[in-house]
């Protein structure tokens, strides 16, 4: 009898978990449907290309302009700066932790990374506001320190632990047999790391970079706080910018329901969603290839 009770319990748990995973799918579908439905009027009334390629974003003027190119450029610039910082730092950190650090250092550094990546972005943003932006303003003699560079640096620092942590996992995943084979041929540590271990973990590393990039593109709080907020096509990385996320966050409150402004903010969200979706898909595909490739030798 007890056995039967067990079985029913197991079944119940199974159904419960299934319902949960179904629910998350339903939510996702709901979000996508809403995004499409709410952004469609914008694309229809303004025109997809006029939006995408439009150089002026004056949604509250009369007549308004809904060109989101400055916002896309802002996102792009900030993300680019962030990648330039986070990729080298993150990779160097990953290689150090996985291949060079001693046992004790490793036991300290790995959790530290995870802790770093769990710090709320508003904290990073705050640091950028009170320290980095004034610092840049003073030393680069800018009219304002709130610029693409400041936001990019903070985003870069923020996504470094993610890239480092995920890349470190990928490096760790490289079978020991490859390392042994390399050392047995008389390779030194540097040769082994750069020519065997990193190439073997390449797909995992690329995945981590993509995910880190996705984080930077989607990040809202930091750019809202320190990117400067100017929706003008930037001429250099020292100018204030308004990335897509911060435009949505800053303007959604004031855009009246159902207005073209309202719909165009949804359109921006949809584009953002598309970008992160593609990035995640790419990461997933690369990760899959990676598993297959190493699977053969394990």
């Amino acid at each position: 009898m007890a056995k039967k009770g067990e079985k029913i319990k197991e079944k119940l748990i199974e159904y419960f978990l299934f319902a949960l995973s179904l629910a998350s799918l339903v939510f996702l579908a709901g979000i996508v449907v809403t995004l499409f439905r709410e952004s469609l009027p914008a694309f229809r009334d303004i025109g997809f290309f006029r939006m995408i390629a439009g150089r002026d974003w004056y949604p509250t003027y009369d007549p308004p302009d809904f060109g989101i190119l400055p916002l896309i450029a802002g996102s792009f610039l900030v993300t680019l700066i962030s990648i330039l910082i986070s990729v080298p730092l993150g990779l160097a950190g990953a290689v150090y932790i996985s291949e060079l650090a001693g046992k004790k250092e490793k036991a300290f550094l790995k959790p530290a990374l995870e802790l770093l990546s769990s710090i709320p972005s508003v904290v990073y943003g705050f640091w950028g506001m009170v320290f980095l932006a004034p610092f840049l303003q003073k030393h680069l003699e800018l009219s304002t320190g709130y610029c693409a560079l400041a936001a990019g640096i903070v985003l870069g620092i923020m996504s470094t632990p993610i890239i480092a942590s995920l890349s470190e996992d990928a490096l760790n995943y490289v079978p020991r047999a490859f390392k042994e084979a390399s050392y047995a041929l008389g390779a030194n540590r540097w040769e082994t790391v750069t020519r065997v271990i990193i190439p073997s973990a390449a797909s995992g590393i690329i995945t981590s970079v993509i995910l880190g990039t996705g984080r930077a593109i989607g990040e809202t709080m930091v750019v809202l706080m320190i990117s400067g907020g100017s929706a003008i096509l930037p001429q250099s990385f020292l100018e204030p910018v308004r990335p897509m996320t911060s435009a949505i966050a800053a303007e959604m409150g004031e855009a009246a329901f159902g207005t073209p402004h309202y719909h165009s903010l949804f359109a921006i969200a949809l584009i953002l969603f598309g970008i992160t979706f593609v990035l995640n898909l790419a990461a997933e595909m690369i990760a899959k290839k990676f598993r297959l490739k190493l699977g053969a030798s394990r």
């Binding site: 490859f178 084979a181 047995a184 390779a187 065997v196 190439p199």
Partner: peptide
């Protein structure tokens, strides 16, 4: 080694690697 452990590289590069590091 007991388990064959070629690098996940081409056949050619598996051998060339050892030569190059030497």
């Amino acid at each position: 080694f007991q388990k064959p452990n070629p690098f996940p590289k081409s056949i050619f590069d598996n051998i060339a690697y050892g030569l190059e590091i030497n």
